[in-house]
Design a protein around this nucleic acid. Structure first.
Length: 206
DNA sequence: CTATAGATAATCT
DNA sequence: GATTATCTATAGG
């Protein structure tokens, strides 16, 4: 006897945690595939709507100059959390990608809040819904992410990323806030999302 | 809507 | 001493 499947059933795998194999692939591919997945930290969760890829061959990457200092974490196993401080005041969260030792990662730039909006508003008082987690620093502030997670694996006790519904259309464009490799189109976004950190240039997708 | 200054500290030259 | 994978407030079109 088979279980009835409602017409609105989710695709297979939805809600399952992403495995190491998901992250053990080229960073740009992981970055694109993370769109639509759900980031959960404590009681807060949201759909990932914007990401950026970085790897060791990339002059804009922290890992470009070797596995020392803060970049060391980027050379760990796929699925490791890499947190760095940006401009002296904001935390930014990455997931390590590719097989261990490659120095690749994906910066999580924005989520569309799903659960725990009340707690996010408490952490970011007075901020309108659209800007709650629209940007890497804002995302970490809203979810309460800081360097305590740096170097730890994704998981129930740290931060989880769950299989979601892939977006119908994906935007691709240049990354934000860098001065080298500015033409590399490794920024990805969900077309039509109102929670992007910034719009994509015209003609960035479909 | 775009433009810009200022905050602030780890990392790099 | 300069740069930085940013954000906010403020000023102007």
């Amino acid at each position: 006897m088979s279980v009835a499947t409602p017409a609105c059933a989710s695709a297979p795998g939805v809600g399952e945690p992403l495995g190491e194999a998901f992250f053990a692939r080229p960073a740009p591919r992981v970055a694109r595939d993370l769109l639509g997945c759900v980031l959960r930290v404590g009681e807060c969760a949201g759909t990932i709507v914007e990401t950026e890829a970085y790897d060791q061959d990339d002059p804009a990457s922290h890992s470009h100059r070797g596995s020392r200092g803060r970049a060391r974490v980027m050379f760990g196993p796929p699925g490791t959390i890499y947190i760095y401080r940006s401009y002296g005041m904001h935390w930014c969260m990455n997931t390590v990608c590719e097989p261990e030792g490659r120095g690749a990662g994906v910066l999580l730039r924005a989520i569309d809040p799903l659960e725990g909006r009340e707690q996010m508003c408490t952490r970011r008082p007075g901020v309108p819904d659209r800007l709650l987690a629209a940007g890497p620093g804002r995302l970490c502030a809203a979810l309460g992410i800081d360097d305590r997670l740096n170097g730890l694996p994704l998981g129930p006790g740290t931060a989880q990323i769950l299989v979601g519904t892939p977006p119908a259309h994906v935007l691709e464009g240049p990354r934000i806030g860098i001065s080298t490799a500015i033409e590399t189109p490794w920024r990805f976004g969900v077309a039509g999302s109102r929670h992007l950190s910034r719009p994509f240039p015209a003609g960035s997708g479909q």
